[in-house]
Structures are given as structure tokens and as C-alpha cells.
């Protein structure tokens, strides 16, 4: 973990370089989404200094990077808990319990959407369609791990796993 928000680790930069290589040489900005994800993975969220550092690395205006960071909803512009749980409550999920699953998690953790538990462990978010409606209820853990068919028993198990 690198604590200086304006500095990205060599490992992060290496991963960003790999993303940059996907695009034509004069289109480094194309890698900004991936670079912000990599930076967020490293810092836990996206402080403004980190966004500016990513922008500088890719040769773009910090504001252009901020537009991106604020447009896509899985970037965290505020600190989040160790486990960010995003519950899809959109209609197809709701028909199979998405809203109820969210309520269940809220009760279990004692927090509402966009809140973090006092111990800093969990943040709860309401999500939009994750493209897995057949697996409803669906949750995402830390943006990258998708959990399917989240009925009470499975939710209990997930929360217990998150240490």
C-alpha cells in the first residue's frame, strides 16, 4: 500500500503501461478508465491527488480525468470500507429479491446505502443492472467479485467470509 496519494507504485505504473499498450500511441487517454481502476485498487479510493497523478501520467488534463472518475459509478471519490458491497435493486433483480436482499444486508450491518460501518469494514451501495439478472439477487464485492443467488443464507456466508 502506497500512502502518498500523488504517487503510484511501480507495480501500478507497470499495469497502467500494459493498458496503454492496447491503444494507438497517440491515444494514451484511452487507458484512463483502466488506470483509474488500478489507482483505486491501490489507494482504496480515488483522492484528487491520485486522479491528478493518473492524468499527468497519461498526458491529459486533470479535469478530463475527473470527468471520467465522476461519470462511471464504480469509481469511489470518497473513502469506502474494506468491503464495498453493491446490491443490484433494479427491476429484474427486485422481482427475485434484490430489494429484499439489500434490506437484509442493511439490517445485518446496521447501515443504509452509501454508508460505512463504524469499524470501517463495510460500505453498502445500491447498484444498477450488472448484467446477471438470471442470477438474482446479485451483489458485487469490491467491484470485481460477483455473487449470485444471494438469499439470506448466502448473504450470511458472504458477510462471515469478509474479515
Amino acid at each position: 500500500m502506497n500512502n502518498d496519494n500523488a504517487q503510484l507504485s511501480p507495480e501500478a505504473l507497470r499495469r497502467i503501461d500494459r493498458e496503454v499498450a492496447k491503444y494507438p500511441a497517440e491515444q494514451k487517454q484511452s487507458a484512463v478508465m483502466a488506470a483509474l481502476v488500478i489507482a483505486q485498487d491501490e489507494k482504496g479510493w480515488l483522492p484528487k491527488e491520485t486522479i491528478a497523478a493518473v492524468a499527468e501520467y497519461l498526458g491529459m488534463a486533470p479535469m478530463a480525468a475527473y470527468e471520467v472518475a465522476s461519470f462511471y459509478n464504480m469509481y469511489d471519490l470518497q473513502p469506502v470500507g474494506k468491503y464495498k458491497i453493491t446490491v443490484c435493486t433494479n427491476l429484474p433483480c427486485a422481482l427475485s429479491g434484490g430489494v429484499h436482499a439489500a434490506e437484509y444486508v442493511k439490517t445485518k450491518l446496521g447501515i443504509d446505502f452509501n454508508e460505512t460501518t463504524a469499524d470501517g469494514k463495510f460500505t453498502l451501495k445500491e447498484g444498477e443492472c450488472m448484467g446477471a439478472c438470471g442470477d438474482a439477487p446479485v451483489m458485487l464485492v469490491n467491484n470485481k467479485r460477483m455473487c449470485s443467488f444471494m438469499l439470506p443464507e448466502q448473504i450470511d456466508k458472504l458477510l462471515a467470509e469478509c474479515k
Binding site: 492496447k22 478508465m33 483502466a34 481502476v37 459509478n73 464504480m74 469509481y75 443492472c129 467491484n143
Partner: peptide, 10 residues
Amino acid sequence: LFAHHGWGAY
């Protein structure tokens, strides 16, 4: 061919 990963925007 390359993969570009989105990050949450319908």
C-alpha cells in the same frame, strides 16, 4: 484485438 473494461455506466 483488445479488451476495454467499462466501469459502471449504462
